[in-house]
Design a protein around this nucleic acid. Structure first.
Lengths: 212, 212
DNA sequence: GATGAGGTGGCACTGACTGCCATACGTCAG
DNA sequence: CTGACGTATGGCAGTCAGTGCCACCTCATC
């Protein structure tokens, strides 16, 4: 290749008018969808309604989101993509559940999802089965990332029981934590995540003072 | 009401021609659906195809199943309904995870789901997102039963962390177990369930010989 | 400012799912 | 045995999610 040794930043620095426009349209659609779902209900809102509210054609809606429910968990891809690298950066000698607890607590990292929006998503997922499915699918894809990471750290194949169970249980804990957070306004999501994962680490056999 | 003090069995004893016919139709549709999904793929099979194969009208299909994917997890309601009572019958002093392990192992109880059919369902769920969603929704409804049962046994509200996490983690273990069973032909599902729940009970912190 | 690539809208189409009504068939009383 | 009733079924029309195709327009590049 020729002398194109520009600094790496140059490759992405000017997002360009086109890119910014696309991003604005995407947000407009996602915002309109979330807003309409909340106010009129999921089933009562048509894609045509959302498109009209976002001032695009219905056809364009489907250029940004493959399905109606996808518009709710807009940043799903970013969240999933962030999880792997964040885990990889944890110290190799750290207990796996501690790594998961740390990364899980940092879920609502500034640039990705803001707390208020995430809460609205969860509230919708609690009520609308289609949205809940989408949320669980997101957790499922993150779970796959965790399996790969855990298998590598444990020196086991990805098909082994321990990495699979560790990932599945961690995502179960994360889901319980987000549910609990939703039910308890004013609390910190990170605290719920910590509590859930710690309980997992201690082992669920000790039934909180019962026979065990 | 008058003296209708017949023995309880009388209320349900003769299933009647009508009931039996309905049951046969239901099975015919479910069988046709599973078969066609396997052979042609889920998306490539229309409700019209299934209806034709089961020798009913498309309209009738929707009288038995609300959605296309529902036809796969036909006995979902029975399985869910069976879980609660089975848990309730476990000895009150038994550790909760032991109860869950016992009931989970007995999943494929004779009258409900046969092993071969369950394996086919899982294989389909592993490939088709819509079917997987349905499977996870089934696990989710069972999870709710477990939460109620665990909360009652622990003397805690259903909103408490421990019963919720216990139920979520147990269902995660059950899912991992069924997945592992699917990947390992010739093994016993019960063994996988036992192994997964035992690992959960021991606590996931002990990273299999690592630092912990 | 021409040219090409990529974003957008319109249109037609498939297929899931629903409401409505007419009809056929078990069920049960007389 | 028969007629009346309740329920299962089928057909039809309609809504809406989602897709392929093509024409148009707009930003980026030389």
């Amino acid at each position: 290749m020729p002398a194109t040794d520009y600094p790496p930043e140059t490759m992405v620095s000017p997002p360009g008018l086109r890119e910014r426009k696309k991003e604005r349209t995407r947000r407009a659609i996602a915002d309109a969808a979330l807003d309409l779902f909340e106010r009129r209900g999921y089933a009562a809102t048509t894609v045509e309604d959302i498109a009209a509210a976002a001032d695009v054609s219905p056809r364009t809606f489907f250029r940004y989101f493959a399905t109606k429910d996808e518009a709710v968990f807009d940043e799903a891809d970013e969240v999933q993509a962030a999880f792997g690298p964040m885990l990889a950066e944890r110290p190799p000698d750290e207990p796996l559940l501690a790594s998961l607890r740390a990364v899980g607590s940092a879920l609502l990292t500034p640039g990705v999802v803001d707390e208020e929006r995430f809460r609205r998503m969860l509230a919708l997922a609690a009520v609308e089965p289609a949205v809940r499915n989408r949320y669980h699918a997101l957790l499922g894809s993150i779970e796959q990332e965790i399996v790969r990471w855990a298998a590598e750290r444990l020196g086991l194949p990805e098909t082994a029981l321990r990495p699979r169970l560790l990932a599945a249980a961690a995502m179960a804990a994360l889901r319980v934590a987000t549910d609990a957070w939703l039910d308890a306004p004013g609390t910190e999501l990170g605290d719920h995540v910590t509590a859930a994962i710690d309980m997992l680490a201690e082992g669920l056999a000790g039934d909180g003072g019962r026979s065990g």
